[in-house]
Structures are given as structure tokens and as C-alpha cells.
């Protein structure tokens, strides 16, 4: 479904991604783990066209997308839940959800999807007219995920959805991720520092170190791998 082929991405003169190749098939949950500054978020921003790679290829359903504008990439069905949630702070919860469906034209179905979201997260229904910036961290994360779902993504990119949340809420978030994957058949590319949780929900995983992919295997094998256990699981 998505294939990164030897992409190199720069911020000015600083090279953040040095030759990254990743492959994601339809229906999978793939996780990308690694330390701070390894280039995980940059990988997602490169896919979305916010920081396009300087060389290499990104193929989505076999077509190169690395030179496309971000809004055109979204229209292909690639959505991101970015790090830090990035809720529009002065838009209401309902307006934030509307923004998620920005490129959709099917009004009736959008309405139905909003109802579905409100069923999934009753707290968002309760706060629909409240400004997004006034929600708690966990609620904002739910809103951020919901906003991305409103776009009906085929591929959902998630950047550290567990960051800064209480353990109970982290558990809830990961359950939702699993549910999105199994019920909506959405392919998920999950970037996480919480390697333990991520590897438990994912099918396969990639490990990233200073701009390179250093390891890739099935999630079960990575969980059992000594190096991974020492470096990322703290065992």
C-alpha cells in the first residue's frame, strides 16, 4: 500500500532521514519505534508532504506521491494524527471534526460519521460546543483521532498518541487503535516511544536509529529480541 524507497529528508542543511525504506501492506498495523530525534516524526511529515524528501521515492498504491502538495496527499486517503495532537484550539469540538472532513463532499454521510464518533467518544458529544483548546489531554487525543477518522483515511499515520497521557487512557487509546484497524479495515502506521504497547498491537515493526532503519521484523520477534528489549523496553 505504502512504500518508502530510500528517502532522504533535510531540515535546511541538517539531514534528518538518511536512506529510509519502509513497506506497509493494506490492513496492517505497522509500528515505528526509536529514541527521541531518531527521525520518526520526520518520516511521517515526509509522507504527508509537509517536509518532502530531497531524494528517494514514496509510493502510495503504486503511484509516486513525494512531489505532491499536502492537501492532495490527504485527498488520496492518507491522514495524520500528529504529535502533540494539534487540536485547533479556538474551534469548537464540532468544528474540529468538520475540519477533519474538509475534503469530503458527502454531507449526509459526514453527519452519520459524526454520530458514530459521538457514540465512540460520548465525552466529545458532551463537549461539542466547547473550544478544542479547553479539553484535557486525553480528550484532545480522542478528538485528534476522531478528526483524522472524519477524513475516512485508508492509511492512518499516528505520531505518539500515548504521549503525556495517564496509563489508563493510554490503554484506552491503544484499544481504539486496534478497533479502527479491525472494524474499519484502516491500515495504521504507528510511531511510538512506548515500544512495549506499540509492539503488542502491531503486526510488524521497524526500529529507527539516527535517521536510519536499523531493524525490522514481526512485532512478536522484536518483542523477544534482546537488543530491542534492552534499548527500548528497559528490561
Amino acid at each position: 500500500m505504502l512504500e518508502l524507497k530510500n528517502i532522504k529528508t533535510f531540515y535546511g542543511n541538517i539531514q534528518a532521514l538518511k536512506d529510509v525504506s519502509i513497506e506497509i501492506s493494506e490492513g496492517e498495523i505497522i509500528t515505528l519505534i526509536g529514541a527521541n530525534g531518531a527521525g520518526k516524526s520526520t518520516t511521517l511529515m515526509s509522507i504527508c508532504g509537509i517536509v518532502p524528501p530531497r531524494s528517494g521515492e514514496i509510493l502510495f498504491m503504486g503511484k509516486p506521491i513525494q512531489d505532491m502538495a499536502p492537501n492532495n496527499i490527504v485527498s488520496l486517503g492518507i491522514c495524520q494524527v500528529p504529535e502533540g495532537r494539534r487540536i485547533f484550539p479556538f474551534l469548537t469540538v464540532a468544528e474540529n471534526l468538520d475540519m477533519g472532513a474538509f475534503l469530503r463532499k458527502d454531507k449526509d454521510e459526514i453527519k452519520r460519521d459524526i454520530e458514530y464518533i459521538y457514540e465512540l467518544f460520548p465525552i466529545l458529544a458532551e463537549r461539542r460546543n466547547q473550544a478544542g483548546g479547553t479539553l484535557s489531554g486525553g480528550e484532545q487525543q480522542m478528538l485528534a483521532i476522531s478528526r483524522a477518522l472524519m477524513a475516512k483515511p485508508r492509511l492512518l499515520l499516528m505520531d505518539e498518541p500515548s504521549l503525556g497521557l495517564a496509563p489508563l487512557i493510554v490503554k484506552q487509546i491503544f484499544e481504539i487503535i486496534k478497533k479502527i484497524n479491525t472494524e474499519n479495515k484502516t491500515t495504521i502506521f504507528l510511531v511510538e516511544q512506548n515500544a512495549n504497547m506499540a509492539l503488542k498491537v502491531a503486526h510488524r515493526g521497524y526500529v529507527m536509529e539516527t535517521g536510519r532503519v536499523s531493524m525490522s521484523d514481526t512485532a512478536a520477534n522484536l518483542l523477544a529480541n534482546d537488543e530491542v528489549r534492552k534499548a527500548y523496553l528497559g528490561i
Partner: peptide, 24 residues
Amino acid sequence: TRVGKAMRATSQDREMAMLVGVDV
């Protein structure tokens, strides 16, 4: 309006607006 919402979203977080598909 749609364009009005896009304007507000862009002013609050331009990159995020791009990520939901707004042609900034």
C-alpha cells in the same frame, strides 16, 4: 462557510490545516 473555517484553522495552526487537506 467552508472557506471561513479553513481561514480560522489556518490561522490557528497552519501545518495542521495542511494535514486535514486545506490548500493553505
